[in-house]
Every structure is written in C-alpha cells, then in structure tokens.
Design a binder for these strands. Structure first.
Lengths: 208, 208
DNA sequence: GTTTTTACCGTATGACGATATGGTTATCAA
DNA sequence: TTGATAACCATATCGTCATACGGTAAAAAC
C-alpha cells in the first residue's frame, strides 16, 4: 500500500493559508499559487486535496465558521457548568462575533469577504446561513430557558428576541469594524439589548 | 470647438450598468467589456470616462450610496413637512436600508458586494464609512431633537441610541437577506428598538 | 468649408490565473 | 525486494481581462 498522509490536517493547513491570505490581502488576492506558497506546498498538492479553487474556498469558509461556532459553544458549555446567569453567558458568546482582538478581527474580515462573494455562490451562502441558523437557535433556546428559570418575562417571544439579538450583534460588528463605535460602546449596547430581554434573576437554573 | 456630451449623464449610465451587473451576477462578473455591453457602448468609451476599472467601480459605489441617502433624506424632509412623530419617520427612513423590494434588494446586494471588497480597498471603505457616518449623525440628531420635544426621555444618550439603531438596522437587513427573518418580523423588531428610545409623545415639534 | 477638439469605436497586447498533464519519490504489503 | 499506489512537484496550456493604441466621425468656432 502507498505512502499515507493526514488528509484532514492538510486540508486544514490549506484552509488556514487561505484565511491568512484573505485577511492580509483580500479575497481577490487568493490564487491557488499564492495559497500553495503561503502553505509552503506546491500548486499540485493543493490540487491533490481540492479538485477546484471553489472547493478550496468553500472549505476555508466552513473552517472559519466552525471555528467561531466552536468558541461560542464552548462559552455556553462553560456557562452551564458554572451555573452562571444566562444573560452574562450570552454576552460573552455574542462577543465572539465582534472584531475585538486579532483573532476575531481576522475571522470577521474573512467572513465578510466570503459574505460578499456568497451573493452569487449558493454554496457559500449556505455556509453563512447555516451558521446564522445555529446561532439563532441557540439564542432562542437561551431565551426560552430564561423564561422557565425566571430571567426572562413570561410573555417574551424567544424567536423575536433571537432575531433581534443576532441582528444587533452583527450590526455592532460592522460598527466596530469601520471604527464607528468603540469596543466599549458596542459592548454596552449589547448589554442594553440583553437587559431588555433578561430582566430578572434566575430562580431555578436551566441550561441556556 | 468640439463635439460635446453630458459627462455626468454618461458616468451615471455606466454606474447603473455596473450595479445591474453586480446585482445579477456578482462583482466578480463585472468586467469592463461586460459593463460596456450592458450600457450599450464600447469599451473605449468606458475608458474615456473612467481612467481605470477601479475608478469606475468606486464611482458606482458612490452612486448607490448617494441613491440610498437621497431617499432617506427625502423621507426625513417629508416627515418634517408633515409634522409627523420622529419615531415613525425614522422607521421609514431606516427601512430604506432593508431589502424589502426589488430596488432595495438590488442596492443591498451591490452594497454588500462592495463592502466585501472594501476590506482591502481604502477608497471603497471610505464610501461605506461616509454613508454610515451620515446616517449615524442623522439618527443622533433625531434623538436629540426627540429629547427636546418630549418624544425621548431626557437622560437618553443620542450617540448610543444612534449606534444601536444603525446596528439593528444593518443586522436586520442581513437577516432578511438570508431569509432568517420575514419582512414583518424585521419591521416589528425595528419598531421595538425605536420604541425603546422614543417613549413619549411629541409636545413641541422640532425637526428630526 | 476648414480646423480643431472631443466623442466614440475596434482590436492588439501582455499579464495572470485555473486547471491539465507528465512526471518523481516515498511507503507499505506481499 | 518489488510492485502498486498515493503523496507530491514543475510546468504547459488555454482563456480571460485590463489597458494601450490607432483610428473615424461629429460638432463647434472661425
């Protein structure tokens, strides 16, 4: 049998190179040749792992989406373990979408670049939509649980609140990016929005 | 003296062709040749009016930004003339940013496509930032005036409210675009957000 | 009518990039 | 050891595109 290699590892390596290129020089600067150079491999090897450039880009987009979602999930899990108030956990979770440090800035830039192209690339649009759906579901569930435990008023609508919170978060990310809002201002707005829904104290803890 | 032509008219014609192409097939599909074809003129003539492709794209971006701002201003002016409550006027003005009909969907798509490229094109980023600044200033002024006329609580901060309202609006536009929210849901969220700041009735009318 | 300037066109050119192709090398099973 | 297969590389090919360039026609001034 032949020589072997860690397929997924290689694909991740290439995806990372793509993201680095996008963050540094924009999506238009991403060519197969440059990606190969950034990853320290040959053009041929990139072709070996991705049939086409589009497939490569799609995988890279998936890569960052998964990265962000992983951190969000981790924050939520940690929140559950430490029995913290839902509002605080969500504040941290949603802040993962804000370009507040180098890592998140890079992710934001990459995501935004792909979002622009996704307008005419259904496969990319689907990645974007899937992430949004996942977050929205998390938020709706958190609000729902908040109602049961007393942090949220009984007549609140989880779906409406979820859309509102996701919209505010994505909008704030834009404001921060164009330096139209300081980090502190954006975080305070996020807190205000959370406070509008999470008005009470948790009586009986439940997973968000 | 030589033959004459309406310079601005031609430039608008070309910008319109660019926007049409972007909306239909994406920014990557915009080539000088295709733009010329869409505008019904020759490649050479496009070059006559724009030295480079980048200059052409920049002008097109400016074009849509100005278009949207013109409608926003018009709505605000109309609101002033008819002495309508500020909250209602803002609801309509901000709805101009939501992809609710064919015109606004096109503008949204074009804007979003450019925003993606603006990450590495300072000239494009400036157009985006300028529009955001203008809207934010309008919003802050509206809230300020609302305080004076009684529609807004005296202790509200116009800057914070402006950032919040702009963020929500841009975020809702994204949700509508990816069909994560219906038009009605988005508009109701926008109303909720406006109601959070505009809590009272106007006693003494003032321009928003 | 002639001249001059600009509006406008068609094509040539040169660069770049995605993908195809024809290799070489390393590893494993037999 | 050997043969098979996958990992990996370098370059050729072909299309596309931005821009350069050389031209024609029209209109305004004289």
């Amino acid at each position: 049998m032949p020589r072997t290699a860690d397929h997924e590892q290689r694909r991740r390596q290439i995806a990372a190179a793509v993201c680095e290129l996008i963050s540094d020089q924009g999506l238009d600067a991403v060519t197969v040749a440059r990606t190969a150079a950034a990853a320290g491999i040959s053009v041929g090897l990139v072709q070996h792992y991705f049939r086409t450039k589009d497939e490569m880009l799609l995988h890279a987009f998936d890569h960052v989406g998964a990265s962000i979602r992983a951190r969000v999930d981790q924050r939520i899990q940690a929140g559950i373990e430490h029995r913290r108030p839902i509002a605080g956990v969500l504040a941290e979770a949603l802040a993962e979408f804000l370009p507040l440090d180098a890592v998140r800035r890079t992710e934001f830039r990459v995501t935004k670049a792909f979002a622009g192209r996704a307008l005419d690339a259904p496969a990319l649009a689907e990645v974007d939509a899937a992430t949004a759906r996942a977050v929205r579901a998390d938020l709706a569930r958190a609000v729902h649980n908040g109602k049961e435990c007393g942090e949220v008023e009984p007549d609140a609508d989880p779906e409406t609140a979820a859309v509102r919170l996701l919209a505010v978060t994505e909008g704030l990310a834009l404001q921060i990016h164009r330096a139209a809002a300081t980090d502190e201002l954006a975080l305070s707005v996020l807190d205000i929005e959370l406070a509008a829904t999470f008005t009470g104290q948790c009586r009986q803890y439940k997973n968000p």
